[in-house]
Design a binder for these strands. Structure first.
Length: 646
RNA sequence: GCCGGUGUAGCUCAGUUGGCCAGAGCAGCUGAUUUGUAAUCAGCUGGUCGGGGGUUCGAAUCCCUCCACCGGCUCCA
């Protein structure tokens, strides 16, 4: 007999060789119907794999990441089998589960492609196979057997994968007519998969290497219930409706021009105002934290970036130098603000008493992104960072770090990003030579970040080896209103630039010391942040940010003068108010302005004119009755004050 | 940059296998109507069909090429 410990620490005894499915069955038949995989002593296993020793286990259903993972991984195999039937001769690369679904990289053979029109055929084939209730069977094989098997099938990609594996740990999974090299785990059988959808196809280099063959990557998603697929499709449609590229155009916030150049956003008046409001908001917050504004030009001498080290690393893949007509000088469009800020630090000798210095600038930078990489406002070639560089003494690092976290948290709270996580990126302890700076400084910096995050109670993940070569960092990820993740702000510690620019301060020991730099951008970039804000809010911005807060709707032309008076009073109270004096019926005006996401519609007609009032309609909430203009102004002012306090 | 897809009016889209002056709705303009809580009616304007080249008696439609956009890959100071 063996002892099986469940997550609640209760212990059950079973005969050796019991499987996860047997255990589920013994707990409840209902559980047995829903369970998808099992964790055994920390490893995720198939439910059909025998357990031969004492173990702690956890059974996974759809709600667990592990359960979904097994489900989608098995679905990738199912799709592969479908492709094998539909495209004879297809060769397989890799087919993992991903955050939302799975993909399989396949080589269809020369000249063959899969297009949108083929998706339905693949989906139908998958469901046909699934309904046959094919078991996923695990076998363990020796390396030479595995090689022989796939060599015979002319699966050169699999052969390559196996060659890179250690002997003795190789497992195959087989369902129906499809056998794959796979670590698992998998579902018991294909019948769990009740709904399949092929989402897209794309090219993907074999093993991520652009010098190697490009395979066809087929993306799909599956569900244990048909209704869940329907819900997912609704979510995709909702995401489409919120797409910032679409709303940016519709709400007249920004545009792109082929003539200006790809990846170079043009901010339209309403978008520029929105952005300016965000900037002013952050400027005020930063003023309170002791930041000092600086302004630097958009270009700098090439030598500046040679000094910073960026030229060596990125020069060839950047916009190429600008040459002066006479002197033969070379300038680069600035790809970041830090070198300029370092020169500001160097303006005069600094004392330990001067530190920390916090130089802030909404600095516009230009980076040559590959053309296929550009995407709306989230990936552009010219963008403005809400940048600042803090120059401090090593002993001030943690305190400064905490203050930056405070700013980030305040921004998230004000803009209602209520769900977020932070990723701490540390250096790879086995690869220390990849990084610049002393061990002592690294340890100090990493400890500072970890402790600062703990003190602020951040929900963090730690990634080893993800640090920049010049220092560890903390990145913030927010979850938007429909559950998607976006990376926003970043805080990075840097020992490299102070070194390269030979930055110093005089300590209280009268000796020269090296300051530490913190790079930080709570929004990340204005472009990206506005994009995320649009997608998060679906264009229904917080009242204090929205371009037009209220529109006065006169019932007929007779009340245009009164409407004018109302809007003047409100605008004088800093409430951004427009008038819709088109020759339209009131129903039409309401409809159009609701669709424009105007927070408050103010209707004025005979009744309101007589009593000097307005009839208020709140966006999405209908008629709120009438009130005096002054009461409305006070109400709005109060509402904004509650949203944003600075 | 690479693979695949898309490109028709400001926006959303029709335009069958190449064939009269390229269409619709919305937006815009003009006029009528003077309106009470999510679309008043009528008329009009607007497109070198992404750019260039080619095939053809004839091209939005077929071919080549360039550009931009979309989905990914690679990259991201």
């Amino acid at each position: 007999m063996i002892k099986i410990t469940l997550p609640d620490q209760s212990v059950r005894e079973y005969a050796s060789g019991i499987t996860g499915m047997d255990i589920a069955q013994s707990i409840s038949p209902r559980l047995a119907k829903e369970v998808l995989s099992i964790t055994v002593n920390g490893d995720v296993w198939d439910l059909s794999r025998p357990i031969n020793h004492d173990a702690s286990i956890k059974l996974h259903k759809w709600d667990d990441a592990e359960g979904k993972h097994a489900f989608w991984h098995s679905s990738a195999h199912l799709m592969a089998e479908a492709l094998q039937e539909l495209y004879p001769g297809v060769k397989f690369g890799i087919g993992p589960a991903i955050e939302n679904g799975f993909y399989y990289d396949v080589d269809l053979g020369d000249g063959k492609t899969i297009s949108d029109a083929d998706f339905i055929t693949i989906e139908n084939k998958m469901q046909e196979l699934a309904s046959r209730k094919l078991d996923y069977k695990r076998t363990e094989v020796a390396k030479n057997q595995a090689l022989e098997f796939f060599a015979r099938k002319k699966e050169e990609y699999k052969v390559e994968l196996i060659n890179d594996l250690e002997d003795g740990t190789i497992s195959f999974y087989e369902q129906g007519n499809f056998t794959d090299l796979c670590r698992g785990p998998h579902l018991p059988n294909t019948e769990f998969i009740k709904a399949s959808k092929i989402l897209s196809v794309a090219g993907a280099y074999w093993r991520g290497d652009e010098k190697r063959k490009q395979l066809t990557r087929v993306y799909g998603i599956t569900f244990p219930k048909k209704s869940m697929l329907d819900e997912y499709i609704v979510l995709l449609e909702e995401a489409k409706k919120r797409d910032h590229r679409r709303l940016g155009k519709e709400m007249e916030l920004f545009t792109f021009s082929q003539r200006v150049g790809q990846g170079l956003p043009l901010w339209l008046p309403k978008g520029a105002q929105l952005r300016e409001r965000l900037e002013n908001f952050l400027k005020r917050v930063q003023r309170g934290y002791g930041y000092e504004p600086v302004i630097t030009p958009h270009i700098g001498q090439k030598e500046l970036y040679v000094t910073s080290g960026h030229y060596a690393k990125y020069g060839a893949d950047s916009f190429q130098p600008i040459h002066t007509p006479a002197e033969g000088e070379e300038f680069l469009l600035k790809p970041m603000n830090c070198p300029h800020h370092c020169e500001i630090y160097r303006f005069k000798p600094r004392s330990y008493k001067d530190l920390p210095l916090r130089f802030a600038e909404f600095g516009t930078v230009y980076r040559y992104e590959q053309s296929g990489e550009l995407h709306g406002l989230t990936r552009v070639r010219g963008f403005t960072q809400d940048d600042a560089h803090i120059f401090c003494r090593p002993d001030q690092l943690k305190e400064e770090f905490i203050k930056v976290i405070d700013i980030v948290l305040y921004i998230f709270k004000t803009l209602e990003f209520n769900e977020f996580t932070a990723q701490i990126s540390l250096r790879d302890p086995n690869n220390k030579e990849k990084y610049i700076g002393s061990d002592e400084n690294w340890e100090k910096a990493e400890r500072a970040i970890i402790e600062a995050s703990e003190e602020k109670g951040l929900k963090t993940t730690v990634e080893l080896g993800e640090a920049a070569f010049y220092g560890p960092k903390l990145d913030f990820m927010v979850r938007d209103a429909i559950g998607r993740k976006w990376q926003l702000g970043t805080i990075q510690v840097d020992y490299n630039l102070p070194e390269r620019f030979d930055l110093e301060y005089i300590g209280n020991d009268d000796k020269r010391h090296r300051p530490v730099m913190i790079h930080r951008a709570p929004f990340g970039s204005m472009e990206r942040f506005v994009a995320v804000l649009i997608e998060h809010t679906g264009g229904k911005f917080p009242l204090w940010l929205t371009p037009e807060q209220a529109v006065v709707l006169p019932i007929s032309e007779k009340y245009n003068d009164f409407a004018k008076k109302v809007s003047n009073i409100l605008n004088n109270s800093d409430i951004r108010t427009a008038i819709d004096d088109r020759n339209e019926k009131i129903g039409r005006k309401i409809r159009d302005n609701e669709l424009k996401r105007i927070p408050y519609l103010l209707i004025v007609g005979e009744k309101e004119f007589e009593t000097n009032t307005i009839s208020v309609r709140k966006q999405g909430d209908g008629d709120k009755g009438s009130m005096s203009i002054e009461d409305f102004a006070a109400m709005i002012t109060k509402e904004i004050d509650e949203l944003i306090k600075y």
